[in-house]
Amino acid sequence: MSEVKQHLNRREFFSYLSVAWITFSAACAGLLTLAFRFSYPNVNFEPEMEFLAGTPSDYEEGVDERWKNGFGVWMVKQEGKLVALSNICTHLGCIPTWMPAELKFKCPCHGSGYYMNGINFEGPAPRPLERYKIGMTPEGKIKVDKTKIYRYEKGQWDHPNSFIQV
């Protein structure tokens, strides 16, 4: 009792230091985790990659825009084939507009134009629009899968999954 310590000795100093340091690091790590979490959106508005698109009889000849805003897909029925056309311009990724009077897709960014079947013909677009995988479910519904794409210039448009016969 007589010896009341006035000063920390070396060993105590280090144990205090390590506690303080660990606390500090933990706080920083927690803050960083929060900041990292913050950079991810709470709600994700990304379109689904897979969706059911009704039955083949829902579609008339020509371009159908009903899935464009939700999923970024044009359903194009032409010459007995129904395809799911991507709505991303192959130039720099803008969203072209379908112009029914002119029968073409026209990109608002640099003026690329595509025919109804997706083939590019004017402006700087280097290649045709891409097709998404399309198929039938056992229940007779159309299923579009955007994770798989088919590119014309690679000769993939003959692939049986790139269109359905209607």
Binding site: F45, E46, P47, K68, N69, G70, F71, G72, N87, C94, I95, P96, T97, P108, C109
Partner: peptide, 11 residues
Amino acid sequence: PANPTWAPNPA
């Protein structure tokens, strides 16, 4: 709000 499936015209 931003919409990934729509672009203003002209953009």
